[in-house]
Design a protein around this nucleic acid. Structure first.
Lengths: 158, 158
DNA sequence: GTTGAAAAGTGCTGCGA
DNA sequence: TCGCAGCACTTTTCAAC
């Protein structure tokens, strides 16, 4: 085991507060966070570095409105696999379908559960019939279309 | 109709390229984007302002690893409502449950489809039995637990 | 609409407590 | 381990093209 770093690898209350602020708005300046939490800007910097090294922070991404960019359909897919053991191979192929934005291996009726974003119903039909049905091991799928997204947020840290 | 702004409200190829870069990493400096796309930093700034005013950009959020913060369970919920007309009232109450991170009004078997993040199975049971079942209009729920999240990304702009 | 450079603000690093 | 101060970099603005 290496002794390069002897720093504190626990997450304390200050870390949680910093994360809470940045999870809502990733562009909040460190100086402003520092003022709010009554510590120095340098401290925020050190804590952020620690959280990044710990892998708690996976990145910062811009959230866009898919509809304003011409993506009108959000749908959920329950996917039946012939055998559970085909999961890894199926995922490898499904990763190539860029309309799939989220994919889980789940308990219950289906083996795979996916979220998919498309331009319109024609585009959705295309992806379902041509791309997804041709993945090896996939038996059939069930589709649920989102008519309204009422909640979209991150976990609230306490 | 107001004539305050006479600016171009179309999204062109340059806008898409800027968004593509920032959707992967929201902290990419404007100067670097400018260099990559061979325009000036000022142009990036003007385009971003336009996209924000158009509502294309909804914000920037820090992505964290829920497991490293003690949230081990991600689950999906299919919710049956007594009547579809109770949707708005139910959503109002469900918004108060902070473990729910995503909620959709969907076609198909269920009226509501939700994504939920909890500390452990006990926490999940608590939220299901105490918080969600007590929402007026909810008949019953079906739960799918995510055993593995294999894809998590944003739409690819073309 | 775009450019390039100047002004303002923020992030980063090392020294001191 | 934290805070302060100085330097480097980024964002923002603006006159000119």
């Amino acid at each position: 085991m290496s002794h390069k770093k002897a720093q504190n690898l626990e997450i304390d209350n200050l870390d949680i507060q910093i994360l809470s602020i940045l999870m809502k708005n990733a562009t909040t300046p460190y100086t402003e966070i520092a003022k709010d939490l009554i510590v120095s800007g340098g401290t925020i910097h050190v804590r952020m570095k620690k959280l990044e090294e710990m892998g708690v922070i996976k990145g910062a991404n811009l959230e866009v409105d898919p509809q304003k960019l011409g993506y009108d359909i959000t749908a959920f897919l329950g996917i039946y696999l012939e055998k559970g053991s085909q999961y890894n191979e199926a995922v490898k192929q499904l990763k190539e379908i860029k309309e799939i934005v989220e994919l889980h291996y789940t308990t219950g009726e289906w083996s795979i559960f996916a979220k998919i974003v498309c331009h319109d119903t024609n585009h959705l039909r295309e992806v379902l019939n041509e791309n997804i049905q041709s993945v090896k091991g996939i038996q059939r799928t069930e589709t649920f279309i989102s008519l309204e997204e009422s909640i979209k947020r991150q976990i609230t840290l306490d």
